[in-house]
Design a protein around this nucleic acid. Sequence first.
DNA 1: ACATGTTCGTGAGCACTGCTCTTGCTTTGG
DNA 2: CCAAAGCAAGAGCAGTGCTCACGAACATGT
Lengths: 250, 250
Amino acid sequence: MSSTHGARARARIEVTAAIKEEARRQLANEGAAKLSLRAVARELGMASSAIYRYFPNRDDLLTALIIDAYDSIGEAAEAARDAAADAGPIERWTTVCERLRGWALEHPHEYALIYGTPVPGYTAPATTVPPAARGAMVAIGILRDAHQGLGLARPVLPDELRPEAVRMAATVAPDLPPEVVATMLATWAQLFGLIGFEVFGQFNRVVEDRDIFFRHAVRQLAHTVGLVYPQQGPAAGRAGSAGRPAARPS
Amino acid sequence: MSSTHGARARARIEVTAAIKEEARRQLANEGAAKLSLRAVARELGMASSAIYRYFPNRDDLLTALIIDAYDSIGEAAEAARDAAADAGPIERWTTVCERLRGWALEHPHEYALIYGTPVPGYTAPATTVPPAARGAMVAIGILRDAHQGLGLARPVLPDELRPEAVRMAATVAPDLPPEVVATMLATWAQLFGLIGFEVFGQFNRVVEDRDIFFRHAVRQLAHTVGLVYPQQGPAAGRAGSAGRPAARPS
DNA sequence: ACATGTTCGTGAGCACTGCTCTTGCTTTGG
DNA sequence: CCAAAGCAAGAGCAGTGCTCACGAACATGT
């Protein structure tokens, strides 16, 4: 049916890709708010109305770019996880976090598209959900490994949070303890607070050496989320500075 | 010179206020990207060109709204701090954090204006810096009080972060230990990660009971930033669940 | 091989935007 | 009282998202 049959179908996916590519360029130059379909068409040498054969409206173009961005950052996270496959959970965590930050700094406008101000009146369709979850799934995977390998402390939850934690765990990672999932989600949001502040310039004139600052903050987050150095037979990384069993109050 | 002399000057500041007010209304309805000067003028019953007597261009109107928003959230933080003046540092911290979140949920578009994606090509003028710092100053004040009252643990910093921590402390809070300032800045960014995820809908379909989730996360942040219940003579709040001295590794 | 239905690019056009400039009017200060 | 300065209005320019009717190129069933 809709395979790469004729020259027509082939041309269609080529033009679609060219539009997205040019749109991404404009995104980097002007930002999402000023993304102009007419300008994209002009740069591609086609009539402005021709764009609408490929994307019914501006928001749909944005949706395509959003999905691509989620896939891109998700892929980066997965690659970082795989590159640090032999290291311990804390090293894997920090490696993934630093790669997420690196991606954000390399693609600030695409980062803004997915983690910044949502486009007004635009609600992301359901198709964006799976790509959006890729990054978080990488983090959850690291926690899962640590959980199975005694490298994860189970934080103590207050009773009032327990039902919500159980609910969250059921929809996100049913095989992990609810305490871990709840803490993980909060930590995940906090991580993007750090990244966002840097990308959006909130650290200007305040934090200078942001590499080191971020590295330290992310190690602290690893502790917050419950990652500790394994207690029996340390993993690949140096395990000199041992961690506590660490059950935190309230 | 430029006091409230004639009826003309009075009218000017009245019209300026009316423009900002109407602009804020449009902001809440349509978002910053679709803020239309013509629509503002139309709603105010004046010619579109008349707006430019008061704001030379659209970005300057946005700048005014940004400053107002910073002042508004800063004022909210200060009010929360004063309302909890008699409580202990942890209660003050959580009260301020929950007020910040409350303000953000009440004014999502103004929140997006100051903590979301920056307007492309627009760099905030220096006049926005003092209002922007108001909120963080409230948090620093709480830490200062706790520091003087033995309610603050001094976290252990790795050596590589020390010079940067000293630099940050010098420009932000010279009277506080560098470790505290460094940890505080990271925690501050993480707090806005939590708020941003909620305001921008990243928690949709994942976190249901966000009040409780946020309250727990903020208590955890209080621990991260080093706030503990005072060791000699507990403060006003209940001090039953005592905290550890808590010096954290790496 | 031919006719049919679908897809595509085009250019005109609508309603809207930010912004500029000239033209007159009103208020102000000397 | 009168010149100077501030002000609103309207026309106009260039740009935007988006629609529509039109031929041309393609795909496909008979």
